[in-house]
């Protein structure tokens, strides 16, 4: 009996489901609190995201006229599922990944993209003009950051010679921190992560002063809550991925907490330091600079490995 229950608990409670959502909300609090402190404010209380979520779940859900009802309700769930599924392949808190196989890096990255895709579809589904512009911008941004971000994560994977996140973790743990060996990759990964999570200055898809709340303008109640949780889970996964790949991996929970907190501080500072980029500026930045640098670094790594093998 115990043996058969184990994967279920794995999926629903401990690293997979409930626990991850709660950690995600805690991360959101940390994010808001850090930004508030950088802005010389006090910031929210620790239970703020929990209260927000519970409140949203208890609220009336309005379905606007003229939307595809099933899509409207299903998309938040799909987004959250994508994020949670991605978490299964990633070793967190010093534990091994729930599931792991050769090539799970690619699967996890694709699962993370489900979120943006769902947001884009959700925006296109509703008739409001703000949501449509928000959706266009979200998808445009996705096409621009996805490639550099992937390239930045490929660097360590090639260095480690494997596509398995768990194995990369052990590889980075044994060698020097890759932030020293591949600094450009690290920068691209962090900035790409911010783009992926639509954090400022890359928050053009939900720019409040231009298009209200972007693609999610028409969502209220449960849908909004699910999208929020999904985004927070993505934040946890993204930070963990960068820590695993560039900051020397995770061997135990303490290491995990310290390293993620350090990275979090950097991300929050970057968030509050810049003015929002226009969507065309974002795209230009990624394709002209990000992708090119990522490619150059990748070439250098491949060449280095090749050279090493010849020498050996």
């Amino acid at each position: 009996m115990n043996l058969s229950l184990h994967p279920l608990i794995l999926l629903l409670v401990f690293p997979g489901g409930l626990f991850l959502m709660n950690i995600g909300l805690l991360y959101e609090w940390a994010d808001r609190k850090l930004v508030a402190r950088f802005q010389s404010r006090v910031g929210p209380r620790w239970f703020q995201p929990f209260a927000d979520t519970v409140k949203l779940l208890a609220k009336e859900e309005i379905i606007p006229n003229g939307v595809h009802k099933f899509m409207f309700q299903a998309l938040p769930i799909i987004a959250l599922t994508g994020a949670l599924t991605a978490a299964l392949y990633i070793p967190m808190f010093g534990f091994e990944a729930a599931f792991s196989f050769e090539g799970d890096l690619i699967v996890a990255l694709y699962m993370l993209s489900m979120m943006t895709l769902s947001i884009g579809l959700a925006g296109a589904n509703t008739l409001s003009r703000f949501t449509i512009i928000g959706a266009t911008r979200a998808l445009t941004q996705m096409f621009s950051y996805e490639a550099p971000f992937l390239l930045a994560l490929l660097g360590p994977a090639i260095a480690a010679g494997t596509w398995n996140i768990g194995k990369i973790n052990t590889f980075t743990g044994e060698n020097i921190w890759l932030i020293l060996a591949q600094p450009i990759g690290f920068i691209i990964a962090v900035v790409g992560l911010m783009g992926k999570l639509e954090l400022p200055p890359f928050d053009a898809p939900e720019a409040e002063t231009e298009i209200v709340a972007g693609a999610l303008t028409e969502y209220s109640g449960r849908g909004l809550a699910l999208f929020h949780i999904g985004k927070n889970v993505e934040l946890v996964i993204g930070l963990t991925l960068v820590v695993i790949f560039y900051l020397g991996g995770i061997a135990n929970p303490i290491e995990f907490i310290l390293k993620s907190a350090g990275l979090f501080l950097v991300v929050s500072a970057l968030q509050s330091m810049f003015a929002r980029l226009r969507i065309d500026q974002t795209v230009g930045l990624w394709w002209r600079l990000g992708a090119l640098m990522g490619l150059l670094q990748l070439l250098a790594i491949i060449f280095g490995r090749y050279l090493g093998e010849i020498l050996r």
């Binding site: 802005q39 010389s40 330091m273 810049f274 003015a275 929002r276």
Partner: peptide, 16 residues
């Protein structure tokens, strides 16, 4: 104006 540009930190500092 800083807020319109999405530069919330500058907005907060100015208003402080």
């Amino acid at each position: 104006a800083a807020h319109e540009a999405g530069f919330d930190t500058l907005f907060m500092y100015t208003w402080r």
